[in-house]
């Protein structure tokens, strides 16, 4: 029988992983939902966010300054990718796939050239190290930070989606780009902006991930698999679905890891199997 403290610890643990997954998936899901572009290079943008973030935070001697500058830099980089490359390939899914897949190799190799192939553990700043006792069980402060970051980003996206004209255009554009254009809205500019927001989210996610799991030139390709699975569980194109799926996967991994540690690695795939067996279009997906 689990004690309440341990049970809550598992829930918090799952929630922190869920929030981390949400951060990793949010940009990808947003870009796919609006632009219908499966950006396989999103994992590489996350990795760039991690490496660049650690570098910038160290250079500026500021954790918060590092995260802001990383988010902006990766955002601008994502805008350039959309403007110079993806824009030419709208409507051609195969070429988009080849392009973003090719970008993975280029971006990953540049990381190796600059920072080398070694795996590097990274310590968060002192005030985010160590753990707190919550209901008699220790819980790492950095995981609480992840929950806080995930909540802030989730709320920000909710507010942008539901309280601004941009959010209105994005939600409408997900349904029909042609009608949005017919209303006099320059959707190409919105495409670029959404890609930029996706990049900002990738930058933040990478920064948070870098201080959580360390730096590795394989982290991008590893994350894109998790991202794809979570987005499919949530329902392709549904941002709410992505958020809910990320939390479910995080909680499942936490509990499966505790009760059946040998299945911890496949927890995410168990969730996918169960969800798709019941609803093939994903939790919030529309057939």
């Amino acid at each position: 029988m689990l004690s309440t403290g341990l049970y809550l610890n598992l829930v918090l643990n799952g929630l922190s992983m869920g929030m981390l997954y949400f951060l990793l998936c949010s940009g990808f899901s947003l870009v796919f939902g609006f632009l219908r572009v499966l950006n396989f290079a999103h994992g590489s943008l996350i990795m760039w966010g991690a490496y660049l973030g650690v570098f910038l935070a160290a250079t500026l001697s500021s954790f918060s300054g590092g995260i802001v500058l990383t988010a902006i830099t990766i955002g601008v980089f994502a805008v350039s990718i959309e403007y110079f490359l993806i824009r030419r390939l709208y409507g051609n899914e195969l070429f988009q796939l080849l392009l973003t897949f090719g970008l993975i190799f280029i971006l990953d190799q540049i990381i190796k050239l600059i920072w080398g192939p070694a795996v590097t553990p990274i310590q968060p700043p002192r005030y985010l190290q160590g753990s707190l006792m919550i209901f008699g069980e220790p819980f790492t402060i950095y995981r609480l930070f992840i929950i806080a970051m995930g909540t802030i980003i989730c709320l920000s996206i909710y507010l942008v989606f539901n309280k601004t004209k941009l959010g209105l255009i994005i939600r409408a554009g997900i349904e029909s780009r042609e009608m949005v254009r017919a209303l006099g809205i320059d959707i190409n500019r919105i495409f670029t902006l959404v890609c930029g927001i996706g990049g900002v989210l990738a930058g933040i996610a990478g920064f948070v991930l870098g201080y959580f799991s360390g730096l590795s030139p394989e982290m991008g390709i590893n994350q894109i698999i998790n991202i794809l699975v979570i987005v499919v569980i949530g329902g392709l194109g549904s941002f709410t679905g992505t958020a809910v799926a990320a939390i479910i996967v995080g909680l499942t991994e936490s509990f499966v890891g505790f009760y059946m540690p040998e299945f911890a690695v496949v927890g995410i795939f168990i969730v996918m199997f169960v969800v798709l067996s019941i609803k093939p279009s994903g939790l919030f997906g529309e057939v």
Partner: peptide
């Protein structure tokens, strides 16, 4: 093309 996930008010505001 009334946007199905937007309210009528949002459809007009858009």
């Amino acid at each position: 093309y009334v946007f199905s996930n937007l309210t009528v008010d949002e459809n007009l505001r858009l």
